[in-house]
């Protein structure tokens, strides 16, 4: 049987923390651990934080769902929400942030997509029927 599961939680910072912990615990029970699990946890935190802070900004608080499936191509996470679509229907590039700046001008954000892109093997995004669907693949066995 293919290990798979689905978790849903409210798109609030507090609920997101608990929801991410539940997904991480489920993945751990399927044998994922160490650095690969730490990477998945970080990516999931960044993706869900973006949904809380951007997709649902100024809207009724909604839900986030996270589905996972272990397959031949690794671990695939599918994250859905009913928030606003990404600008121009495409994912942020996640460019390196310029740090050659005086201390008081150093950026305090803009690192999320850099981390997501560096720690995933594959990313795809579609907007369909009012949903955002982000699919993330991790090369884990």
């Amino acid at each position: 049987m293919t290990p798979r599961g689905l978790h849903r939680f409210a798109a609030s910072t507090e609920a997101a923390r608990d929801g991410i912990e539940q997904v991480v615990n489920a993945l751990r029970q399927h044998g994922l651990g160490g650095t690969p699990l730490a990477d998945v946890e970080l990516v999931l935190a960044e993706v869900v934080n973006n949904i809380v802070e951007h997709a649902y900004r100024g809207r009724e608080p909604g839900l986030v769902s996270v589905a996972y499936v272990f397959g031949a191509s690794g671990l695939i996470l599918t994250v859905r929400d009913r928030g606003a679509p990404f600008t121009a229907n495409s994912l942020p590039a996640g460019h390196a942030v310029d740090l050659a700046l005086p201390r008081h001008q150093l950026p305090e954000g803009g690192f999320g997509w850099l981390l997501i892109r560096r720690l995933t093997s594959d990313l795809s995004y579609v907007r369909r029927n009012g949903f955002n669907r982000l699919r993330l693949r991790f090369d884990v066995s």
Binding site: T35, A38, L42, A45, E46, N49, R103, H104, L106, P107, E108, G109, F111, G112, L115
Partner: peptide, 29 residues
């Protein structure tokens, strides 16, 4: 996560210009 990282950067920026913030004991993640 990146929010926590931003909070550490902010913590350094809110120190006066003559003070410095160093970091110790970073775990692997």
């Amino acid at each position: 996560d990146s929010s926590g990282l931003g909070a550490i950067v902010a913590s350094m920026k809110q120190l006066s210009a003559l003070r410095r913030l160093d970091l110790a004991g970073l775990t692997p993640a």
